[in-house]
């Protein structure tokens, strides 16, 4: 019961934040509504027993990536979004495509939910930091190392792109 109420509350906050992201004209308002979405997603992760993922969601996404977005918006002094015509392909093909996709997925999930079963608030040792670390540094060691190389490349790319040519 508590689980359902909390899920509905945070789920509604999520969706409201995402809709607000689309409706706002000023990028800083969009960025802040995205932060709201991410924070309530972190709370939903806690409901699913994923405490470590929830913590890094807040630290990495809301605390680092979105601060970077806000920083860039402030730095470029981005104003209100201009209304321009936009891409015709996106309007003609994209929007109906997404609506069809959403309808199909929604229909599948609603009709198939009986077979899927349900999710519970997990026991305390599931999603624990120790277990994730063991998995990450044993079974997923190679992908982990590759992502560190990816990060290094990204740092160098960002430095090269951000440097002013003299």
């Amino acid at each position: 019961m508590v689980h359902q109420v909390l899920f509905i509350v945070f789920g509604l906050i999520c969706v409201a934040g995402a809709i607000n992201l689309l409706l706002q004209r000023h990028p800083i308002n969009s960025a802040l509504s995205l932060v709201v979405v991410m924070a309530s997603l972190a709370l939903i992760y806690l409901l699913l027993g994923a405490e470590f993922v929830a913590a890094i969601q807040v630290i990495v996404y809301a605390g680092a990536i979105m601060v970077l977005f806000v920083f860039v918006i402030m730095l470029l002094n981005a104003g209100e979004e201009e209304r321009t015509r936009g891409s015709r392909v996106a309007l003609i093909l994209g929007v109906p495509g997404v609506i069809i996709l959403a309808a199909t997925v929604g229909w599948l999930l609603v009709t198939g939910s009986g077979q899927l079963g349900s999710v519970t608030i997990a026991s305390s040792d599931f999603g624990e930091t120790h277990a994730i670390a063991r998995l990450l540094f044993k079974d997923f060691l190679l992908p982990f190392e590759i992502t560190s190389v990816l990060i290094l490349i990204a740092i160098m790319g960002a430095v090269v792109l951000g440097k002013r040519e003299s």
Partner: peptide, 23 residues
């Protein structure tokens, strides 16, 4: 059991207060 991470996370959200105040 993630007390330290919570403090780090909350501190990193606190940056918004300063950033938005100035902007």
């Amino acid at each position: 059991n993630i007390g330290l991470l919570i403090i780090l996370g909350v501190t990193s959200i606190g940056v918004y207060g300063v950033a938005l105040a100035g902007w």
